[in-house]
Computed example of a mutant assay.
Amino acid sequence: MLSRPLEPKEKLSIQRKSRKEQLLGHIRLYYQLYLMVLPAFIIILLFNYVPMYGLQLAFREFDPTRGITGGEFVGLDYFRRFMESHQFWTLMRNTFLISFYSLIVGFPIPIFIALMFNQIRHARRKRMIQTVAYMPHFISVIVVVGMILIFLSPSTGIIGHLFSWVGLEPVNFLGKPEYFRSIYVLSDVWQHAGWNSIIFVAALAGVNPQLYEAAKVDGASRLQQIIHIDIPHLVPTIIILLILNAGSLLGVGFEKIFLMQNSMNLPVSEVLETYVYKIGILSNQISYSTAIGLFNTMINFIILIVVNRIAKKTSETSLW
């Protein structure tokens, strides 16, 4: 007796059941690994996804007595108010310039450091240099800013004393807007460049040693080995990290900028994050600050999609 052909719905049901059984079997087989990942998953869920419930404040008039969902719905009024404000273009320009400066200066340096580490053959010396390069990453932002303030103080700082020693007038670097971006970016590079090179060092560790041996046999110098072996192996990692960095182009950060701010450098140091804090927390304009934060996130998301699309069309490497 011939069996009847399965209906499309029945085929779909069988496929779903098979996938479910495969998933459950995979979880049973590797349940220890899933238990290890569970705390990180819970933290991400609680601190990254659950707070998204409050994004509706960007579209409502916040009323503490009526809760998050009880305020009057105002639509895009807060977004329109922000884009029409006199500070909009100043905030966008300051945020973009600092972020772009950080990307242009800070992104290539870890690659260069990783290439230099890869050329050190003495294992003990290599570990020592890597440790020294990684250590600044673990210094607190508050401590780093305190060091900057001490070094650059025109009256008591080391730089001020050096200027006086050579007969020059000490300069208040943090009080001059034209120096703020360079101080911020270069101090950030000093603190994080070594740590950010770890992923590139790991990528270089996967290079087949036979390629170096073949290059030496052909008479290639170290520079030629870097150009023709190391850099091509780093390209996929460079593209992925560049996409991720571009996706946070307007995400300068809050702590360091805020700690370095003063009344004299405010015209170039006021960025979206510090403005959100002052408007939301200090001025108690919760809905308005939520709208600005959401606007910043959406711009970053759009940049991420565009850069990923460009990377996908120009190379074989992309996030999706």
Score class of each variant (00 low, 15 high):
105 V>H: 04
293 G>I: 14
207 V>S: 08
230 D>P: 06
192 H>R: 10
311 A>K: 06
282 L>D: 13
53 Y>S: 03
204 L>I: 08
56 Q>A: 00
197 S>Y: 06
190 W>G: 08
86 H>Y: 07
61 E>Q: 09
37 V>D: 09
126 K>Q: 09
290 T>A: 06
215 A>S: 12
59 F>V: 00
22 Q>E: 10
237 T>P: 01
111 I>C: 12
313 K>C: 12
67 G>H: 13
202 A>G: 11
42 I>Y: 02
234 L>S: 00
216 K>S: 07
47 F>D: 13
231 I>C: 06
100 F>V: 15
297 T>W: 00
286 I>V: 06
18 S>N: 15
135 M>Y: 01
81 R>N: 11
74 V>N: 12
26 H>Q: 08
281 I>C: 07
88 F>N: 11
65 T>S: 10
288 Y>I: 09
1 M>K: 04
28 R>F: 02
290 T>S: 08
210 Q>V: 04
3 S>P: 06
214 A>W: 03
204 L>R: 04
144 V>K: 07
251 G>T: 12
250 L>C: 06
46 L>E: 06
31 Y>D: 11
8 P>W: 03
161 H>G: 14
105 V>T: 05
206 G>C: 05
114 A>L: 08
216 K>D: 02
82 F>H: 14
176 K>C: 12
111 I>N: 01
113 I>G: 02
184 Y>F: 13
233 H>M: 04
130 Q>K: 10
274 T>H: 00
59 F>A: 11
109 I>E: 01
301 F>Y: 12
171 V>W: 11
90 T>V: 15
1 M>A: 11
312 K>H: 08
60 R>E: 02
264 M>Y: 15
79 F>Q: 08
260 M>V: 01
214 A>K: 01
75 G>H: 04
182 S>R: 10
220 A>E: 05
148 I>C: 15
218 D>G: 13
17 K>T: 07
210 Q>Y: 04
4 R>V: 11
180 F>Y: 10
27 I>L: 00
3 S>C: 06
236 P>A: 10
182 S>Q: 05
93 R>D: 03
29 L>Y: 07
72 E>M: 12
105 V>Q: 01
74 V>M: 11
209 P>V: 05
110 P>R: 10
275 Y>K: 04
220 A>Q: 09
169 E>S: 01
271 V>F: 07
264 M>F: 15
248 S>A: 10
63 D>G: 02
41 F>Q: 04
254 F>D: 03
310 I>N: 05
44 I>V: 14
283 S>H: 10
55 L>I: 05
103 L>E: 09
245 N>L: 08
116 M>R: 01
153 S>T: 15
75 G>T: 04
316 E>V: 14
150 I>A: 15
296 N>V: 06
16 R>D: 12
174 L>R: 08
128 M>N: 03
189 V>Q: 05
320 W>C: 01
251 G>K: 13
21 E>R: 07
269 S>A: 09
132 V>Q: 12
76 L>C: 03
305 I>K: 00
150 I>K: 15
46 L>H: 05
136 P>R: 05
217 V>Y: 13
210 Q>R: 07
169 E>C: 01
319 L>G: 15
9 K>I: 11
135 M>P: 03
121 R>S: 15
137 H>M: 13
229 I>R: 03
